[in-house]
């Protein structure tokens, strides 16, 4: 077997296109996970058991079942009840929903880390519940959560190759198409894997930068 550079040169633009799709899925999926995670965390703290218990159950269920099967569910089952999504959108929703169950735990820890005196002070100042959350608790809880959130950005990116199963055009899907014509899997699979690996390292480097910049609480 020989390593064919010309073959790699031919497929590289296609693979890079795939990587761009993968990065789009990562970024939008992660934004979704950050927003939904906060919603889950707040709902789980609700004093009404009718809200907190079912939300808690759903979150635990999503977290302990495989993303891949959830993707199949979103992409193949939801159209039957009239919710049609393109493969990429289904992938983004799946990633966002799955990782929201992780980020909600991060927010929970961040909220628990706010000293009780802050709650008491908000009560003493007669702030409304909404004001307490938006002006006192969350501005302290969210920066605390950033370092751990960064870890989940990398984790989410590493799950993007699973979108191959619902035909999103990420690098492995591209590699499969290339292989179907060339019958030379070694270079294609290796390059797709390497692209993911390099991108993961770059992302984790930026994650560390963001953490250093925003990860401290300023009072």
């Amino acid at each position: 077997m020989s390593w064919d550079w010309a073959y790699i040169g031919d497929m590289m633009p296609l693979l890079l296109d795939g990587l761009r799709t993968a990065l789009i899925a990562t970024v939008i999926g992660f934004v979704l996970a950050m927003v939904l995670g906060l919603v889950f965390a707040l709902l789980r703290r609700s004093k009404t058991a009718w809200i907190s218990v079912p939300v808690g159950f759903v979150v635990e269920f999503i977290r302990s079942t495989p993303l891949l099967v959830q993707l199949f569910f979103l992409f193949y089952v939801l159209p039957q009840i009239g919710i049609e999504m393109s493969a990429l959108v289904a992938g983004i929703v799946g990633l966002g929903l799955h990782y929201a169950t992780y980020t909600s735990e991060v927010y929970r820890a961040g909220i628990d880390g706010v000293p009780p005196g802050q709650w008491e002070a908000a009560t003493a100042l007669n702030l409304s519940t909404r004001r307490t959350w938006t002006s006192v608790i969350l501005p302290q809880a969210i920066p605390r959560s950033i370092p751990a959130l960064g870890n989940y950005l990398i984790a989410l990116f590493k799950d993007v190759p699973q979108l191959v199963a619902i035909t999103v055009a990420e690098p492995f899907t591209v590699a499969r198409e290339v292989i179907a014509e060339s019958f030379k899997p070694f270079e294609a699979i290796t390059m797709a894997g390497l692209l993911y690996l390099i991108a993961a390292f770059v992302l984790s480097y930026f994650g560390r930068l963001v953490e250093r910049r925003y990860g401290t609480v300023r009072v």
Binding site: D159, I189, L197, A200
Partner: peptide, 17 residues
């Protein structure tokens, strides 16, 4: 850094080469 899927792909499709 390497996802399970990437490793599995590589072991099953590339390693035999």
């Amino acid at each position: 850094g390497a996802a399970v899927l990437v490793l599995a792909f590589w072991f099953v499709y590339a390693l035999p080469m």
